[in-house]
Design a protein around this nucleic acid. Sequence first.
DNA 1: CGGTAAGTTGAGATCGTTCAACTCCAGTGG
DNA 2: CCACTGGAGTTGAACGATCTCAACTTACCG
Lengths: 235, 235
Amino acid sequence: MKLADTVAPIRPATAAFDVDALAPHLPTTRRRLRTGQHLYRAGQAFHALYFVHAGFLRTSLVADDGREQVTGFPMRGDLVGCDAIGAGAHIGDAIALDTCEIVELAYPAVLDACRGVPALHGMLAEAMGAELRRDRARLLALATLSAEQRVAWFLRGLARRQRALGYSAHHLCLRMSRVDIGNYLALKHETVTRALSHLDADGVIAVERREVRIPCVERLDAAAGAGAAVASRAA
Amino acid sequence: MKLADTVAPIRPATAAFDVDALAPHLPTTRRRLRTGQHLYRAGQAFHALYFVHAGFLRTSLVADDGREQVTGFPMRGDLVGCDAIGAGAHIGDAIALDTCEIVELAYPAVLDACRGVPALHGMLAEAMGAELRRDRARLLALATLSAEQRVAWFLRGLARRQRALGYSAHHLCLRMSRVDIGNYLALKHETVTRALSHLDADGVIAVERREVRIPCVERLDAAAGAGAAVASRAA
DNA sequence: CGGTAAGTTGAGATCGTTCAACTCCAGTGG
DNA sequence: CCACTGGAGTTGAACGATCTCAACTTACCG
């Protein structure tokens, strides 16, 4: 079994979430966020998981000395907040990079709901398993790829996720800043810019500010290095 | 809420596992591994989670191009294999670095057992949540710390885990090679050696091959950098 | 129409890697 | 019993990728 088969397959787990079917078994609340609003902040009491119905967010981990690490860019179909389970409080921020529509799943009520909806149990476990795999695929990418390969890997991940949701994989609109990308990839924003410029010069992509065109996905795969089959990413 | 409070607290989740109490609700198998034996390999069908009752292992993620990333060094009280949930097969290897005693928890049978043992449900979720937090704390460490700080951070994590199990935090016996440590920390083995030598020269630790003495844990905390409160590690 | 945040680009400094030599130790077989 | 062999660890020196610092451009907002 290859990672490509285990990590990439478009997260059937979370994407298959039929949130509406849960309503009879669990208090679900809908929330709308505007760009820049927080879904939660580090330190806030943990009382719900969040299912992203629409929009684009940035999640991060905040250390008590102020250092911040971007942990993901959840979008439609992703489950947010799992890393607070068992901690009592959120360990980082979740902020909307776009207008978002969120479904709140009260915790631990959602565990009880597993009895009424047996399939939910496996789905929750699988969603968390998938998140672990993504974190580890990212670790592998950070540990083994050069700056330019990481940026290519990142773009490819975004493209795949878009495609999985039915959008084109040939055009991206980056909702996050270069600083966010750099933080996510353990690079400085200047290095991200340089990598993007270089990929552009090589004709792999066409960058214009936050618009990115990807004429040939295979070339981007190649630019992501040996790790051609190593993953998408998210949550 | 600080990370130190959420990540470090000695994993009550997994440590609290009372595996024996599960026996009536779930087929549990005990397994014994000798040093060098595999608990599972990348690609093997996933059919159980593993609870480490004794011993020390190394888990890794294996990419199809052969690149390998060490993902953790599970020891007593840790739950292994969660990252395969939903994938069908293991995405990496788990190998014994020591004589190990393992309790196999059949999956998905263990989910069904949650009905008979309600507390198990929350414990499983919390164990996975804790694993997510550890992965992310590690990401933060790799992204923000220098080579020497990472090595100090790694040693501190081991010391804390030992202490949590009731052993001394002042003496470590590294079961893994420098190469493994380097892979885990995204460094080359020479760099790991240099960092250890330098910490030794500074009097923070005393290294002799795989034996490490830690006279003053606070000094090690300081050497782990700003991230003084950022985490232990595991699974 | 300033003012500010985000992005780009260059040049030099730095940290970790690379390549290489050497030591130490355990296991093996003469 | 001891020389041999190979893996693991250590250390040095030079190189190179990324960071740092700094200047400049562009776009957006009041």
